[in-house]
Write a protein that binds this DNA or RNA. Structure first.
Lengths: 249, 249
DNA sequence: TACTTTTCACCTAGGTGCGAAGAT
DNA sequence: ATCTTCGCACCTAGGTGAAAAGTA
């Protein structure tokens, strides 16, 4: 699998594709928050080496950034509401601006390594959080998500990405231009489109466009789901950042 | 005062200007819904008579329409959140489509008289509802707002409007074009702009662009505020629809 | 040199009133 | 004849990557 790249800017840039999840097994009458954050895969910094088309370790990450949580704008809502349709995080934005969104952090999430010297490739993965709404308790974008009984976190190792300020891998640029409606202005009509389907296949992020959060034990929500959490402590980068295999040239 | 006009369409049309309110006196830690609906001023239907620039009674209204409530998208939220800034209903839309929004009535509100033969002038006024969030209770766009202890309704007689499918009073058209950014393409640069400030003054809807909902007794919220509710049972239309006094010609 | 920020043309998405066409 | 609907040009608002300019 190949980790994809996400642009980060000062003003905030959307992820593409956006995370979309289907939720099953909630208590229909219980209120829930749904939130998302991103966590670093390791404490390394990476740079893209063009001649080998590989991400290489290039030092250690910056000091950790204060936690930043994106609370889905429909929160809180009943389990029934959440389960009725696909939950999309398309309004979420990535930024490298530590200051600005302290005050009004509506739709902005902060990636861990910011203003890194080289292409920041301290790749991040996402955790999904489903929090039972307790009376009076309120979630804050600038506090970490409360761990414990009512919180359950899901993560998807294959949705790893690299934060960049400019795309490094040209195949990723092609995919973004081809799939993102807002980039239509850069599309090549006809030629240069060959192999795009194959490209999509090699990027796990794109392939199953929808992921499922399944709750089998609703009332307690105590049993923590561990979908490959070892992944995040994996020191072997090669399993995360496999070499791009050039598709056309 | 002169009642303004609002376009209604099948797809739904925003009100302009949108209702904006400031809320004071809520319990900061209590959760509240805020909702809005519109109610008919009387059961008459009106038509606009051009040569006299007046709205005249032209029969009775259609049978009443099922209640439709617009729940502010930020609902539910804490009193603190609601009071922090101005609450705007700019996403609310008016429609004459009874069927379509039964299923997904997110941002659509249904005016009482629909498909009326003449210009439907069964003017409607708005009620603002602030509902304390009870545990488990959920508000529905297709049910009437629950009356009683936790609900409090405000109404502003001066914000009466007439639902139309095409503007009748040309002065209102001028005001809309001049003030609504989305109608910029129809603006006359320079001339024809004289007297617009005076026009705004004569339309109560525009004048205080912000209204206040004040709660003096928070815990019970039992005392029902009656801001000129007699108005809505007033049979003298002349107090509602005064003659437009042509400003320029 | 190696990264980051800014600006820009080009899109999507959707809110305007107008005028022609449709409906009753 | 009177009202409603639809398509349209013209806006606002904002999401793209490219390329130029900035930074260290």
């Amino acid at each position: 699998e190949i980790g994809t790249e996400m642009i980060i800017t000062k003003a905030g840039r959307r992820m593409f594709p956006a995370m979309r999840v289907k939720i099953t097994g909630l208590d229909p009458h219980q209120q829930y928050y749904i939130a998302m954050d991103i966590i670093p895969v390791d404490n390394k910094r990476y740079r893209y080496v063009y001649h080998s088309s590989k991400w290489m370790v290039a030092g250690n990450a910056d000091s950790p950034v204060p936690p930043r949580v994106y609370i889905h704008p429909d929160s809180p809502a009943s389990g029934e509401t959440w389960m009725r349709q696909v939950v999309s995080f398309d309004k979420l934005k990535l930024t490298n601006n530590e200051l600005d969104d302290q005050g009004h952090p509506e739709t902005i999430i902060c990636p861990s390594p910011l203003r890194s010297f080289f292409t920041p490739c301290t790749s991040t993965s996402r955790g999904f959080h489903v929090i039972r709404k307790e009376c009076g308790e309120e979630l804050s974008p600038v506090r970490a998500i409360p761990a414990g009984e009512g919180t359950r976190t899901f993560s998807f190792p294959e949705t790893v990405f690299t934060t960049v300020t400019a795309y490094q891998n040209q195949q990723i640029t092609r995919l973004k231009i081809d799939r993102n409606p807002f980039a239509k202005g850069f599309r090549d009509s006809g030629r240069n489109r060959m192999g795009l389907e194959a490209l999509v296949e090699s990027y796990a992020f794109w392939r199953p466009s929808l992921r499922t959060l399944t709750f089998e034990d609703i009332p307690g929500m105590a049993k923590q789901e561990s979908t490959n959490n070892e992944f995040y402590h994996n020191t072997d980068k090669e399993t995360v950042f496999k070499l791009d295999q050039p598709c056309q040239g």
